[in-house]
Nucleic acid binder design. Sequence first.
DNA 1: ATAATAAACTACTAATTCTATAGACTATAT
DNA 2: ATATAGTCTATAGAATTAGTAGTTTATTAT
Lengths: 135, 135
Amino acid sequence: MKLSVKSEYACLALITLAEAYQSGKLCSITVVAESKGIPKKYLEQILLILKHGGYVRSYKGPKGGYKLAKDPAQINIAEIIRLMDGALAPVESVSTYFFEHTPIEKSPRLLEVFRHLRNYISDTLEQLTLDKLVE
Amino acid sequence: MKLSVKSEYACLALITLAEAYQSGKLCSITVVAESKGIPKKYLEQILLILKHGGYVRSYKGPKGGYKLAKDPAQINIAEIIRLMDGALAPVESVSTYFFEHTPIEKSPRLLEVFRHLRNYISDTLEQLTLDKLVE
DNA sequence: ATAATAAACTACTAATTCTATAGACTATAT
DNA sequence: ATATAGTCTATAGAATTAGTAGTTTATTAT
């Protein structure tokens, strides 16, 4: 019931890019990694996933780097975590994305509570867009 | 951001024992395992942890088995999950139990949201006592 | 007493996941 | 041409998870 470091890194990287969004400037992997204390080679993979997900754009060569592909207000934390870690659900079977049989189904009331928690977390993080996270 | 199977098994086992609580009858590991579809030898370990945690009492020998050590209304799901899986926090650094440095600290606003989620999950599961889960 | 039953305990293993590193390749600005 | 910066694939070490195995201890019934 915890967030992966990978998701945390993804959020931090996007926040960094969101801060640079107004100026239109690019940020290199190195700059992002150093500003947030993220291992550079690991961040590389994370940014690639974000790129394939359509959240960032990249430019090669000197003066190259990354920038957000859309407005910070159009990117929410829920979708980022889902992209990096999979479903947000506290229990797999509560997920709306997959349905796997898990033992907890044997208690409908417990399942109900976890479903509620999933919705709450989901709603909260869907409303949390990058513009609300820039300093 | 998901619950372990171990926690799910623990909750289901306790619900089973809560259902037998009024009658005062004991439930053997075999009975609990079969009624909830839990691997018997794994459940054995889980019940042992619950016993050491003071949640259940056990009796050896023929006619032996397990029963709750306290009233179902005195046992909440939050403490069970903490016992089995550790802190409930969606992010370690939000935990009140340990303080470890995690990357997310670099964004106080994000940390704030996760802290809120932790409290919400915690409060919800602390109010969820076993008596509310019996059929 | 003894056999049967059921919990207690310890050790182990197989698979998966997570975090991170390595290195070769491609594109681009100067 | 060269340096810079992203792309891609592979891999490795550690930790965790879920589950199994086997032996020991206590208790009940015969």
